[in-house]
């Protein structure tokens, strides 16, 4: 996508993860990522790439490098559900009405 402008800097632009909130009170959810030279430009780029359909109430951008991710090799020790431990799956409680978003 080079040509008309000097684009040497763009290769160095960091990546930002974009989180959007579709309804007030709901969690921000990961939408994707953008390149940008700084946080403010990341927000503008994210707006252009992920909010054009008009559903977004709020948006966060986070430098991708600040995210620490688990590795697939750890999946066993991290995420095995322990199905034999019933107390981890307390589905026998009834939720009060009015807390629909709790699940």
């Amino acid at each position: 996508m080079a040509s008309a402008t000097n684009t040497t800097a763009s290769a160095d632009w960091p990546m930002w993860e974009v989180f959007v909130q579709l309804e007030l009170g709901e969690p921000h959810q990961h939408a994707g990522n953008v390149h940008a030279p700084d946080a403010r430009m990341a927000l503008l780029n994210a707006r252009d790439v992920y909010s054009r359909r008009g559903l977004v109430k709020s948006m966060w951008v986070v430098p991708s490098e600040t995210i620490t991710a688990s590795t697939p090799g750890e999946n066993g020790e991290f995420f095995e559900p322990g199905n034999d431990k019933l107390f981890r799956h307390p589905q026998f409680y009834k939720s009060p009405k009015g807390v629909g978003n709790l699940e």
Partner: peptide
């Protein structure tokens, strides 16, 4: 369109 300095700016100008 298709000539922006980077993809994100390409989209911004098209918008």
């Amino acid at each position: 369109c298709g000539h922006g300095p980077i993809l994100e700016e390409d989209i911004a100008l098209a918008n």
